[in-house]
Nucleic acid binder design. Structure first.
Lengths: 198, 198
DNA sequence: TACATATTAGTACCTGGTTCTAATTATTTA
DNA sequence: TAAATAATTAGAACCAGGTACTAATATGTA
């Protein structure tokens, strides 16, 4: 096996399992540990611990901003059963790496979270939605979603919420949500009201 | 400061920043490094490297299944401009930890990804959608989304796609998507066709 | 054959710890 | 107040998984 072939294999192995040690690599590639290390140098692959650290840091950033939180976006204003505003900044982890455009479901998730949070009920869940992506949202843009409750049925019924999301003055998304409100734990899209603002 | 108070502080510090070393902790808590280590022992907090490893492994699991991939769900059948089927298993990272119910935007994302992937165009993007969450989806359930293209406009125009998502025989989600297709790179919700199944 | 490239070997050193023994300080309790 | 107990600190040996560096040995090529 040539040096190039071996380095290709090494890339593949580490790509397939980033948790592999140099010692394990020597067993798989049948070369000395020094060769493995020279190869890693040439290929710019950091040591195992550094790889794990980078993965941990990367995931930590995501965890802090993302779906670890049951509400996507930061709710800055809330008048229960009336209106709400949330802010969500489009970051690296929300976009297609290819073109820096936000994945639709993040924009959707912000609006959905806000619609549900605005409804004052033990349990609120999205029943249906009618949505439109008015224009693409790019990396770094700050989405401001504004929710308006349009109608409220009884204590256990449907509520209708309109959400408009803006970047600056521009409308980027609009949605009409039908949200079920209930005191019974059945389908919780936003869950217990008291737990929303962790 | 009592031992209990210190251990509470220690928990808080590590919770706030899991990347802190014992040495940094000695500076913040003004005790010896042995005390820090005894405290970690008592509290069952692993060493920095182990913490990073766990985060990395956890995120790696997520990355493998989740939005790192630009298509949410595994497309198992695809007839461009006609129909498509994708499978998406609801895992730990897709549900509300509180009740084990899938976050709506994952169910939405699977359907959205499939609708876009089914359209045969250089660039495809979701323009609007009309969706309904028919019943909740729980941890461990396998969502099978079936897309049917209903209408196609010219090379650069709108396409309409219906997506029905099932768990077993039960319908859990339905959506009507309007997707823009274009050869011009403008708003890519699924991106270059050739890159979808990487 | 001479030279270059590739590979292997070996040593010292590093971080961020664990494990263990032992000594020193509080703090409590009899 | 003295003895007992708990809490804290010190120090040395050791570990994984490396880096950095020097030097020797293959292996191929002009």
């Amino acid at each position: 096996m040539s040096k190039k072939e071996r380095q290709q294999q090494l890339l593949q192995i580490i790509d397939g399992n980033p948790f592999v040690t140099d010692r394990e690599l020597t067993r798989q590639l049948k070369v000395s540990i020094q060769t493995i290390r020279l190869d890693r140098m040439e290929l710019g692959i950091p040591e195992l611990r550094e790889r794990m650290k980078q993965m941990a840091e990367h995931s930590y950033d995501q965890v802090r901003s993302l779906p670890a939180d049951e509400v996507v976006g930061d709710i800055v204003d809330l008048q229960l059963d009336r209106s709400g505003i949330s802010i969500f900044e489009i970051r690296e982890e929300h976009v297609f790496s290819r073109n820096g455009i936000a994945r639709g479901h993040y924009v959707f998730a912000q609006a959905n979270s806000l619609a549900v949070a605005t409804i004052n009920a033990e349990i609120a869940l999205t029943a249906s939605a009618d949505i439109r992506f008015v224009r693409m949202v790019r990396l770094g843009e700050k989405c401001i979603a504004k929710a308006q409750v349009r109608s409220l049925a009884g204590r256990n019924g449907k509520a209708e919420v309109d959400v408009f999301t803006y970047v600056g003055e521009e409308l980027v998304f609009q949605g009409h949500f039908v949200v079920y409100r209930s005191a019974i734990e059945e389908y919780s899209e936003g869950g217990n009201r008291s737990a929303d603002r962790h």
